[in-house]
Amino acid sequence: MGQSNPAAAPQKSLSHVLQRRETTVAYLFLLPALLFFAAFVIVPMIMGVVTSLFNYTMKSPVSAESFVGLGNYIELFKDKVFLRSMWNTVVIVVVSVPAVTFFSLWVGSAIYQKTGWIRSFFRGVFYLPVVTGSVTVVVVWKWMFDFQRGIFNWALKSSGLIEKNINWLGDQKVAIWCILLILFTTSVGQPIVLYVAALGNVDQSQVEAAQVDGATKLQTFWQIKWPAIKPTTLYVLVITTINSFQCFALIQLLTSGGPSNSTSTVMYYLYRNAFSLYRYGYANAMGVILAIIIAIFSALQFKTMNTGVEY
């Protein structure tokens, strides 16, 4: 037992050499992706954080003279439009994320055991807005919401439900809900497809065993299926949260943040400052704040949903 094998040392050394070579090759394979990630994600992120400390505009580049420290951040929290945009963004996230998750889970549960063509039909219907260009989707919705000639007003008026047209996108109380409706329809496609796949992968023997033991449908769902689809739910929550926080194209194409900033989001206000007012440093400060908030939300979701999740 205490005897040493004379061949062991060279073998060990050979094994190390082989391991190092394999590691080197593995890193070389990773290198292009890492370089790409560093160049287009890490570096811009660092630049964003750094330039947010400067009064960086088209006229004033990043320099010692334009350094303002936390000035942009202090201004942000005094900026009523930014605060309104932040509030709107949070409303969108708080309403949209649970709605998308519950609806997707409901649809997924309802169709995953149906025959192949029914599943495909529903997946196709709900996924269509995802694969259709956002501009096309928004233009169609804009026609439907049109104050003067939209189909919604026409239908409601024709059926006698309203007397005067509703200015869907021009009324502060209604516009944000219109945005949420469109966001909802464009967000549910992917979660439904994921839930259908996840529910289809739940171990049927466990489901049957629970049913044999007399478990109700609800009990079977919560005790057997729900734990099995928790990783999917976590993914859906995180992705939907990030997408909702970054809601931009809908706002830009539909309302330009109006009326009276009632649909302005942080991403839209950031864009307005960067590309209309050329306040790059100020816009970057918004980006940093938004990134921090998204990170906090995502961390909370991982913390609360990640218990017992196995990958």
Partner: peptide, 30 residues
């Protein structure tokens, strides 16, 4: 595998280099 990864790296570096060159050729705002 080594050659492939080396080529990919080189191509990316080349792209980056070109960009850097064009950026440096561009005037500073001042």
């Amino acid at each position: 595998a080594f050659l492939l990864s080396a080529m990919m790296t080189a191509s990316l570096t080349a792209c980056g280099g070109g960009q850097a060159a064009s950026s440096s050729a561009a005037p500073a705002s001042s």
